[in-house]
Design a protein around this nucleic acid. Sequence first.
DNA 1: TGACATTAGTTTCAAATGTAACTAATAACT
DNA 2: AGTTATTAGTTACATTTGAAACTAATGTCA
Lengths: 171, 171
Amino acid sequence: MSNDATRTRARDAAGPDRALLELERFLPYQLNVLMEAVSRSLSKLYGERYGLSVPEWRVIATLGQYRTMTAKQIGAHSRMNKTMVSRAVSALQRRGVVRRDRNANDRREEFLSLSDEGREIYDDLAPRAARFADTLLEALSVEERAHFTQMLWRLEERAKQISAARGKDII
Amino acid sequence: MSNDATRTRARDAAGPDRALLELERFLPYQLNVLMEAVSRSLSKLYGERYGLSVPEWRVIATLGQYRTMTAKQIGAHSRMNKTMVSRAVSALQRRGVVRRDRNANDRREEFLSLSDEGREIYDDLAPRAARFADTLLEALSVEERAHFTQMLWRLEERAKQISAARGKDII
DNA sequence: TGACATTAGTTTCAAATGTAACTAATAACT
DNA sequence: AGTTATTAGTTACATTTGAAACTAATGTCA
């Protein structure tokens, strides 16, 4: 048993067959599993109804909420790099979903907004998406929902801290 | 104001400027933001130290925990399709990190396991990953941690239910 | 004013990924 | 036994993505 080549000192020290890392108890793994289930369902929604890709949906959702934005603002808000925003916007414009208006004061940027057709799509999708999230949250009690959101937010802050402090071997 | 062409009936009914969907309060969005922050930090860990890709890390983490598995089992457990598993495994084998042993009883499949070098990598990375998750979870109190995990799990179950019930317009 | 730096957005190219077709082996049915 | 179906895993091809180079416009500073 102790001469089993694949059994290292570290594992021996850890006692009976307990792995150094149990994936099912590992937060990034758990988050990933949930995230995948959620985004699969959601993307089915806008994918089947309007043939939208994820980045396209994000652009529509952002413009639906904020009415007018530059590509850069959309990227900052929906967490996409400028390449993805550029591609999604031009695809949506070709489809007549998004309008571009050059800013006369700074002709590098354009003001983007939903066309009438784009707004129709948003008005159809947004409530469905909201309903989807509500249905999901029925898994939690009302108090839990607020608490959960709060915890998500704190974890995110902590994640930012960690990656900022990287190098100072916090990890 | 009410003759603004971009303002639809739906929005009017919703009252003063309140969007149909507020992204920052939308669960899939929140999850995505957290997930991205977390997985960026984590992948920096194994990316910088050993030049591992996400799928490669998943294979190592799975084999580290379960010692021996077929490619199919790894896929089921780490939620990758067989193509990704195949590619990650063969890259890792080329690097001498993973060993393959054909199953003599069913020569279609192979038993995969970490080589000594692979186990060294795992023994280095796994505790770091665990420490990363612990550091992250310091954002929550001890009681909250258990509660949070529990809620994640319930949400996941609910997400599965929803996508199963799709068509019966639960959404 | 004129050189240089920065910024918004696009395009190009390489890497990552998913789907579907494929190979080799086993199982199932007759 | 022999034909057909299923399964494990690989490969080929198309699509998606990200990083870096690029274009066009604005800002900065001498």
